[in-house]
Simulated assay, not measured.
Amino acid sequence: MSSPASPASVHLRDLDLSTAHALVCQSPAGMQALQGRAPREYLQALIDHLCELSLKDPLTGLPNRRFIQAVLQSEIDRVARSGEAALLLMLDIDHFKRVNDQHGHGAGDLVLQAVARTLECCLRPMDTVARYGGEEFAIILPACQFGFGRAVAERVRRAIEDTPIVISPTQTLRVTVSIGGAFALQWIRSTAQLWTERADAQLYHAKASGRNRVCIEEQPDTTVSAEEKNLLFGALYTSSTWGDLPGPHDPPVCSAN
């Protein structure tokens, strides 16, 4: 029985790359990246661009759900190690079905693209915004303290509400969003699914409360007592060594425009 060919012995002519090539060449940047390449460089560029396509929403150009799931888990790990704050916002365009029903799916696509551009413009470079699915978007804001979470979410909500969206030469729409938010649990290694579910629950509250508003989850109490510190780290570390970790904050209420 012959041994399988090593990667070095595989030739491009032995591979059916026509579909992959066509996908990458749909964008000018992808086409340029493949032109005039030696076989090995061509194959590497093709793989790199296919990976990029798999993590991007084709309509809005934002990262997709697959990408943000990885960012969520990475941020959970960081918060569990450092105890720093991180906020997850889930946004839903209000009455989006009405836009599609009254103006057509082409207008709905323009609305999604306009919301995506607005989100990119009003966030920091370190933040991650993604199209989560349908008319829902997700934003991860690292190093966002609890006291600033509502102000950030309100700024996003107002920016979208104030943005006119041209859907034809004679027609302009305005849309609103409902926003739910939850902070990552400090010092606790949770999961991306649980964090998303907590933010989704707040999004549901915002929609049930009338839409076009923000609901942020009450900051959970993740204070570690001196006794717990000793149990976790041993008697070597005393409360004077570790200091007092942050306590809970007052519960927020949903805010509307």
Rank of each mutant, 00 (worst) to 15 (best):
V156K: 00
D92C: 08
P251W: 13
R66S: 04
S6M: 13
S27G: 00
S2C: 02
F67L: 04
E135I: 02
E154S: 02
S9L: 12
A116K: 14
A192G: 15
H103F: 08
A201V: 12
R98T: 13
L141F: 05
V71F: 06
Q44D: 14
G104N: 05
V129Q: 11
V166G: 06
N64H: 02
T170W: 08
L87P: 00
S190D: 13
L62G: 03
C25V: 12
M31D: 13
L173K: 01
E227L: 09
Q73L: 11
P246D: 10
A151D: 15
G180P: 08
L53D: 00
R150E: 05
Q193Y: 10
V175Q: 11
T196Y: 15
L203W: 02
L43G: 08
R131G: 04
M90N: 08
K207S: 14
D94I: 12
L231S: 11
I140G: 10
I76S: 03
L112W: 04
L53G: 01
A114M: 09
Y132R: 07
L88R: 01
T170C: 10
A29G: 00
E136D: 07
R81S: 03
L89M: 03
H21Q: 15
L43Q: 12
A151V: 01
T176P: 01
S74I: 08
G234N: 06
R37V: 07
T170G: 08
Q69A: 08
A29S: 01
G234L: 08
L203Y: 02
T60G: 07
A5F: 04
S6E: 11
S255P: 00
T118F: 03
I188N: 13
E218P: 11
I47C: 14
I188P: 07
V175R: 11
V156C: 03
K56T: 07
A86T: 03
K207Q: 15
A226C: 10
T172M: 06
L203H: 05
I167V: 15
T128F: 15
L55A: 04
E217Y: 09
P169N: 03
S209A: 14
A114Y: 03
L17H: 07
C144D: 03
A256T: 04
G210Y: 00
F183E: 04
A208G: 13
E75Q: 08
Q26H: 12
K229R: 14
E41H: 15
H49P: 01
L231H: 11
A235P: 01
V177M: 08
D48E: 14
L72R: 01
Q73I: 05
L110S: 04
L23C: 12
G61V: 03
L72A: 01
G61P: 00
G147K: 09
I160W: 05
R40I: 14
I167N: 10
A5D: 10
P220V: 09
G30L: 00
A45G: 05
A208E: 15
G147S: 12
P248K: 13
T163Y: 11
I47V: 15
L88V: 15
F137Q: 10
V214H: 01
E136R: 07
F233H: 15
L17N: 07
F137V: 10
P4Q: 06
Q35V: 06
V111C: 06
T238W: 11
D77H: 12
S178A: 12
F137T: 06
M90C: 14
P248H: 13
D48G: 09
E218D: 10
G210P: 01
